[in-house]
Design a protein around this nucleic acid. Structure first.
Ligand SMILES: [Zn+2]
Ligand SMILES: [Zn+2]
Ligand SMILES: [Zn+2]
Ligand SMILES: [Zn+2]
Ligand SMILES: [Zn+2]
Ligand SMILES: [Zn+2]
Length: 431
DNA sequence: GAGTTTGAAACT
DNA sequence: CAGTTTCAAACTC
């Protein structure tokens, strides 16, 4: 019974730690789940935003989704914020950034997140571990950003809301923190013209759930210290923060947010008859049907209704959820990596070629309301504090080297400290 | 494209 | 917090 859900896992059977077969492809995504995708882009808007930001005076940003708690003052300019500010939908690291200058012009402001209370360093606490941005995948991945048709940027379609005014989380656009633009919605208030109402809606939403605009999928680095190999890592990195509550989809259809995000169900999920776990035969079957959506759906159906589902045939014990995904990072690495990257791909990122959940990088440009500009891949990875550390390290190292060469005793720096520094240095090299 | 199914979000 | 309703997307035909 509730197989999947929590119980299963732990104790019973041998963990079939099935190594996941290479990931295979999954159906091209169509739309993403509601709320899962935060990056939309719109070059024009981005440019405008950038321009606008340039003209504004530096002040606190705030334009966007106000965080109830305190808003911290301005972000360090020019510096990428590192942690994701709570509350707001952030975009993927390498793609966008908030403009350096705070305070976007009004109209575009979207959810700019307010930096969480502390700015940077403080939180050793467990911030969601994050995966490292794999490959930046440059700009093209998403095949259909622009629909070829008449050359008009059809961009990805957005919502088709009719009764929510696009001011509720039901609306994908609103949930993603973007304005509706080119959507097929009716009675839309998620636009600049209705900024006031929109803002109120945002506040109300945040009141209900302060994390409403934060990414729902936390990442979990499945990487080892070097984080390499992540890329090869299978499909599932990260887990849904709240978990799904599916009852009839077996978590093998896009109705399931976990599945849609291309991640396995976790202990956070309270789904029934979950088949979205590592080692699930049913899930494997899906993956094997490369690129064939129809086949995949059929496989999913089979799994769900038990017709063919592996679960029907094989051991009754099959169902487990993965519990601790994380694992293997050493502390220091975690410290460094955990903080950033708050989110993984929130959508099913499978590309036509079957890629991983993570990257989604494709957006060549970003969307408007947020001010965005292109940013280096490591922009969100490298934090100001890191830079400082690195500088310190370099100074220290160079000093030591000098001493070594000059025969001066190096004793000043403790060994352990040195080691730490060394380790850090290595981490940097990796990055 | 119309109609059904589904589970998150909203509401009570 | 649980139970119900609302909603828009995923899916089916
Ligand atoms: Zn909408
Ligand atoms: Zn929309
Ligand atoms: Zn709309
Ligand atoms: Zn599910
Ligand atoms: Zn799940
Ligand atoms: Zn599940």
């Amino acid at each position: 019974e509730q197989a999947g859900a929590g119980a299963g896992g732990a104790g019973s059977g041998p963990p079939p730690r099935v190594p996941v077969p290479a990931v295979s492809t999954q159906p091209p995504i169509k739309k993403l789940v509601r709320q899962l995708d935060f990056n939309y882009g719109n070059p024009a808007m981005a440019a405008a935003a950038a321009a606008a930001s340039r003209t504004v005076q530096p002040r606190a940003l705030q334009v966007g989704y106000p965080q109830p708690h305190q808003l911290r003052a301005a972000l360090p300019m020019g510096v990428p914020h590192q942690l994701q500010p709570r509350g707001l939908p952030v975009m993927r690291p390498h793609q966008m950034v908030h403009a350096p200058l705070p305070r976007p012009a009004l109209p575009m402001a979207m959810p700019v997140p307010v930096p969480q209370a502390r700015s940077a360093l403080p939180q050793p606490v467990q911030r969601p571990p994050v995966a490292v941005p794999l490959k930046p995948e440059s700009p093209k991945p998403r095949g259909r950003l622009y629909d070829g048709k008449d050359g008009t940027p059809t961009k990805k379609k957005c919502c088709n809301c009719r009764h929510s005014k696009c001011l509720k989380l039901y609306c994908e656009c609103f949930a993603s923190g973007i304005y509706c633009d080119g959507c097929n919605c009716t009675n839309c208030f998620n636009n600049v013209e209705n900024e006031v109402a929109r803002r109120e809606a945002i506040e109300a939403t945040l009141e209900r759930n302060p994390d409403a605009f934060r990414p729902k999928i936390g990442s979990s680095p499945h990487t080892n210290r070097n984080n390499m190999e992540v890329a090869g890592d299978l499909p599932l990195i990260g887990k849904h923060n709240k978990g799904c509550h599916c009852k009839k989809s077996g978590c093998l259809k896009k109705y399931c947010e976990c599945f849609q995000a291309n991640i396995l169900c976790s202990e956070n999920c309270k789904c029934m008859d979950c088949k979205n776990f590592d080692g699930s035969e049913d899930r494997k079957h899906l993956n094997f049907d490369h690129k064939n959506v129809i086949h995949m759906q059929q496989a999913a159906n089979a799994a769900v209704n038990g017709a063919i589902g592996a679960t029907a045939l094989s051991s009754p014990s099959t169902s487990r959820k993965r519990k601790h995904i994380d694992s293997s990072l050493d502390l220091s690495t975690k410290e460094h990596l955990a903080i950033r990257n708050g989110q993984l791909s929130q959508k099913n990122a499978m590309a036509s070629d079957g890629s991983l959940p993570i990257g989604q990088s494709a957006h060549p440009h970003m969307m408007g309301p947020f001010k965005v500009t292109y940013r280096p891949l490591l922009a969100d990875i490298i934090q100001p504090g890191d830079v400082k550390e690195l500088c310190k390290l370099l100074v220290t190292v160079s000093g030591q080297a000098a001493k070594a060469y000059t025969g001066i005793a190096p004793g000043i720096v403790g060994k352990s400290r040195k080691r730490r520094l060394q380790r850090r240095k290595m981490e940097w090299e990796v990055l």
